[in-house]
């Protein structure tokens, strides 16, 4: 019983601390001095360097999804709807969520480990005494880079995924590139695209803030660093699903679906 209450308390402690950390981002991050150079460097590290991974997984996902869906659609006699089904699935849900999860696996862990080892080797303290606010220099830049880069990666990932789907469709039948994309384009409405795009900003923010939070609060030693990297991935992945759930409810209420 005591372990249960202790766990519940630890959960709320963690939630509170994480929220405070995020609040710090909004109160400190908007004040000068702005770290543009570091922000650009992080956008390159976090965004550009994740592109091959996101592209590869997106391509395979589009291809496999199409091949898996085909038999069911054939049995209902609606094989012609394959591009539409795949397109909606990718753009509305699978693209953003899978990209975010891949991103969390790659980025939250690397931020957690990087900041964690900087913390335990006192590099963060060294920055602090060198006239640099480590929260602005390290945290604000990384969180912002994640928030801006994940939506870009998702757009690219979606596009490559749809291309994978096009190839998947063409394995068993022949559809022209034009027809395939016209079909998808016509089936998608504003309400499909916009909420899916907007939620990726929240996914990116969650990955960045959790990675930084875990790194900044890393306990001493290499074990501590490992734990921060690991728990950053776990927590940010869970948060991605929670945000996804909330966004679906919200768009439902707003009648955007």
């Amino acid at each position: 019983m005591t372990t249960l209450t202790a766990r519940i308390r630890a959960f709320f402690d963690e939630t509170g601390n994480l929220s405070r950390f995020a609040g710090h981002f909004f109160s400190l991050g908007i004040k000068p001095r702005y770290e543009f150079r570091e922000l650009l460097a992080q956008c390159y590290q976090i965004g550009y360097k994740s592109f091959p991974l996101v592209g590869l997984t997106g391509f395979i996902m589009g291809l496999v999804l199409t091949m898996q869906l085909r038999p069911s659609l054939v049995s209902y006699g609606v094989e012609s709807q394959l591009p539409v089904m795949v397109g909606i699935a990718i753009v509305r849900e699978i693209g953003p969520v899978i990209t975010a999860l891949i991103f969390a696996g790659k980025i939250a862990s690397s931020i957690g480990a990087e900041l964690g080892s900087m913390k335990v080797t006192e590099q963060i303290d060294a920055m602090d005494v060198s006239g640099t606010n480590p929260f602005k220099y390290l945290v604000a830049t990384r969180v912002l880079a994640c928030t801006l880069m994940l939506p870009m990666l998702t757009l690219l990932g979606d596009a490559i995924s749809l291309f994978g789907a096009y190839i998947g469709v063409n394995i068993r039948s022949v559809t022209s590139f034009n027809l395939f994309f016209t079909q998808i384009y016509q089936s998608l409405s504003f309400g499909d695209v916009l909420p899916a795009f907007i939620k990726t900003f929240f996914f990116g923010f969650a990955v960045g803030i959790v990675g930084c939070y875990k790194g900044f609060n890393s306990s001493k030693g290499t074990r501590g660093v490992g734990i921060s990297a690991n728990s950053a991935v776990v927590l940010s992945s869970v948060l991605i699903f929670v945000i996804d759930l909330l966004v679906v409810q919200l768009t439902d209420v707003l009648g955007l679906n």
Binding site: E114, S117, M118, T121, E122, Q123, D125, A126, M127
Partner: peptide, 9 residues
């Protein structure tokens, strides 16, 4: 710093 704290990146 006792442990030097050089920025290793």
């Amino acid at each position: 710093f006792q442990g030097n704290a050089l920025y290793d990146s």
